[in-house]
C-alpha cells in the first residue's frame, strides 16, 4: 500500500453554473498533517465533503486508500466513512444530548461495546481534549472553543485513520486557538492519525503542518512544506501569506467598471 492516504486526481467540481474546482490534484500523506489554505468562500469545506463522499465531482477521481470514493456502493462508502471523521466548523454537536452522549454516539451506533466500556472510552477521549469535567454539560452550555473540543473528542471516538478539520481556528480566542493547535498536533502523533486541516489562519497552521496547499481562484496556486511555502516566489502565495488587501487576488468582486455602472444607472 502506498503512503498516500487521500489522492485527488484532476478533480473538476461545479456548483450550479459556478466552477468551484478546475482540475485540481492533491495528495495527503499518511501520518502527516496536510494543510489546505485559501481565502474564505472558495469552497474549502466543499473539498472535505468531496473527500467524504457527500458531494460528487463532475470529473476526476478521489481515492481513499487507493479506492475511488465516488464509485463505491453506498454500503462500502459507509464502511469507509468509519475510517474517516470530520470536525465541522460549528462542531455540529447534537444539541439534544449531553457532551458525554455526543461522544458516545458513534460508539453506540457502530460497536457492540457494553456501556461500561463505552463510558471508559468516552472519558478517555474527553480527557484527551481536556473536557472530562464537562461530560454532563449540554452543548448549549459550552463556549465555542469547548464545543469544538467536544466535537473533536467525538471525531476521534472510533479511532479513525483520517481526520478532517474544517476551519478549526475560525472565530477562536488566542487561548482556544493555541489549545486547538496543540491538540491537532498531539492527537496526530499520539494516535497515528492523518490530518487534513482546512483553514485561512496561515500562521497557526504552518507551525504544525507537514505539507501545505494554497488554493485560490479554483486552482492550487502553491504547494510545499511550510518552509517552501514561506519562501515561495509566487506573488499570489506571498499576497496570501502577508494578507495584502489587493494583488493577484483582487480586492474587488468582478464587476463592470465604475463608470459603466454609473452611466448605466443614469439611463
Amino acid at each position: 500500500m502506498s503512503d498516500i492516504l487521500v489522492d485527488i486526481n484532476k478533480m473538476h467540481f461545479e456548483r450550479g453554473e459556478r466552477v468551484i474546482y478546475d482540475d485540481i490534484s492533491l495528495q495527503v500523506r499518511k501520518g502527516g498533517i496536510t494543510a489546505v489554505m485559501g481565502p474564505s468562500g472558495i469552497g474549502k469545506t466543499t473539498l472535505l465533503k468531496l473527500i467524504g463522499g457527500q458531494l460528487t465531482p463532475e470529473s476526476g477521481e478521489v481515492l481513499f486508500q487507493d479506492e475511488n470514493i465516488h464509485q463505491m456502493s453506498r454500503k462500502r462508502l459507509y464502511d469507509v466513512r468509519r475510517k474517516m471523521s470530520m470536525l465541522f466548523q460549528s462542531g455540529a454537536l447534537f444539541t439534544n444530548i449531553s457532551v458525554f452522549d455526543n461522544v458516545a454516539f458513534p460508539l453506540r451506533e457502530h460497536t457492540g461495546l457494553s456501556e461500561e466500556v463505552i463510558k471508559t472510552i468516552v472519558l478517555l477521549k474527553l480527557e484527551a481534549v481536556g473536557l472530562r469535567g464537562a461530560a454532563q454539560l449540554m452543548p448549549s452550555e459550552l463556549s465555542g472553543g469547548m464545543a469544538r473540543r467536544a466535537a473533536l473528542a467525538r471525531a476521534i471516538a472510533l479511532d479513525p485513520e483520517l481526520i478532517m478539520y474544517d476551519e478549526p481556528f475560525a472565530g477562536q480566542d488566542p487561548i482556544s486557538m493555541g489549545v486547538l493547535v496543540k491538540l491537532i498536533k498531539e492527537l496526530n502523533s499520539a494516535l497515528g492519525l492523518t490530518s487534513i486541516v482546512v483553514t485561512h489562519d496561515v500562521t497557526e497552521v504552518l507551525t504544525i503542518a507537514d505539507y501545505a496547499y494554497i488554493m485560490a481562484d479554483k486552482r492550487i496556486i502553491g504547494a510545499g512544506t511550510p518552509d517552501e511555502i514561506r519562501s515561495s516566489s509566487s506573488e499570489l502565495v506571498q499576497q496570501f501569506l502577508r494578507g495584502n488587501a489587493d494583488g493577484p487576488v483582487p480586492f474587488h468582486f468582478p464587476a463592470p467598471s465604475l463608470e459603466t455602472s454609473f452611466m448605466g444607472a443614469n439611463k
Binding site: Q54, Y78, R81, R82, M84, M86, S90, L93, P106, E109
Partner: peptide, 18 residues
C-alpha cells in the same frame, strides 16, 4: 443548518435511517 445531518453522514450513520 447546524451541520448535524452532515456530521451524521460523516459518522457513517444514515440520517434517513436515524
Amino acid at each position: 443548518a447546524t451541520e448535524q445531518l452532515s456530521s451524521l453522514e460523516m459518522m457513517a450513520v444514515d440520517p434517513l435511517r436515524r
